[in-house]
Amino acid sequence: MEILRYSAFSLDPAGGNPAGVVLDASGADAARMLAVAAELGYSETAFVTPRSDGSLGVRYFSPLAEVPFCGHATIATAVAYAQRHGVGNLLLRTRIGDVPVATGRGGDGAISATLTSVAPTSVVIARRDLAELLRLLRWPESDLDAALPPRSAYAGNWHPVIAAGSRARLSDLDYDMPALAALMARKEWTTIHLVWRESPTVFHVRNAFPPGGVVEDPATGAAAAAFGGYLRELGLLDLPATVTVHQGHDMGRPGTITVTVPAEPGSGIRVSGSAVRL
């Protein structure tokens, strides 16, 4: 099993979100995949099984468990595959359904990838669950941005969206990791998507990820897709729109995620970024 290491949503190895990539995991069972992911210690590792029809079966593992979908590992996988086999279109067969990914080269020669999410949706977070979440984050409700109401958003995984009223609030991340992990397990939330709006189409983001065994995820493509669906569903964008998400800066691993939000209700959200081999 050849294990590759990439950082997604950055061309700087010191930025973005590291992911493991195995381009041929044929014959490996879930226990072996989990062991590899745990040894690597990245928030996710993608395991690819090529199929006879040209599509790619993909499974994603954090150091602690299998996850249904991972955006940054998808971008890393697509870039790694394109470097081996050339740019073009891929079809990933994942636990959440089929995810198309397109790869291409920019003017600087770097390969970038764009995934199209499954249909996104969002739901209101129950008042009791929201109160518990804010208590564990140690964020008073008065510190939130009332124009971006809390919701649980989905585009493959569920991510509560909590909007800070200031950049300073977003910068202060100090939560009860075991208790938040327990709440997220009960609610089947994958990460907590904490955002601050710089402008209508520019956001700064942090992602708490205790279920993956890490305090914070540096760049989260699946959550970015869910957030794009959230913005469209709540009428917070002039559509179609391109949204820029800055993530990882507070961790010292800056990355940039480009989110394209089509006007058609229910259509997949496109998430784009580059990746660099580590």
Rank of each mutant, 00 (worst) to 15 (best):
V261K: 13
A222M: 11
A222Q: 09
P210M: 08
V214S: 07
M251V: 03
G268S: 11
P254L: 04
P211D: 10
A241F: 00
P218R: 03
G212Q: 10
G268I: 08
T242F: 00
G266N: 06
A224C: 15
T260R: 15
A223L: 12
P210C: 09
A225P: 06
V271Q: 00
F227R: 07
D250V: 11
M251D: 03
D238K: 03
G268C: 14
V271L: 00
A224K: 12
V259R: 13
P218E: 07
I257W: 07
V245E: 04
V245S: 03
H249E: 15
D217T: 04
D250M: 12
P218Y: 04
E264S: 14
G252R: 08
R232D: 05
R270Q: 13
D238M: 01
A226D: 11
G252M: 08
F227W: 08
D238F: 00
P254H: 05
P240M: 03
T244L: 11
S267M: 06
H246Q: 07
L239R: 02
T220A: 09
R270Y: 03
G248S: 01
G229Y: 12
D238G: 02
T220M: 10
G213Q: 09
M251E: 05
R270N: 06
G221W: 14
T244E: 04
L234F: 03
R253C: 13
A224D: 15
G266S: 06
A223Y: 08
I257G: 07
Y230P: 05
I257H: 10
P254F: 05
V245R: 02
G228D: 07
P265Y: 08
H249F: 11
H249V: 05
G212P: 06
S267Y: 02
G252E: 14
I257V: 12
T244C: 01
V215S: 13
T260D: 15
E264T: 15
R270F: 03
V259N: 15
V245I: 15
A225D: 11
L234K: 05
V214E: 04
L234I: 04
D238T: 04
A263D: 14
G252P: 11
L231C: 03
Y230I: 06
H249Q: 13
Q247I: 01
T256G: 08
E216R: 08
P254I: 02
L237V: 01
H249G: 12
I257P: 09
I257A: 08
P211M: 09
V259D: 13
L231G: 02
M251G: 03
V243F: 00
E216T: 07
L239E: 03
V271N: 00
D250Q: 15
A219W: 06
G255S: 15
L236P: 04
E264M: 13
T258H: 15
P262G: 13
L237S: 02
P262W: 10
A241P: 00
S267P: 06
A223R: 10
A219S: 13
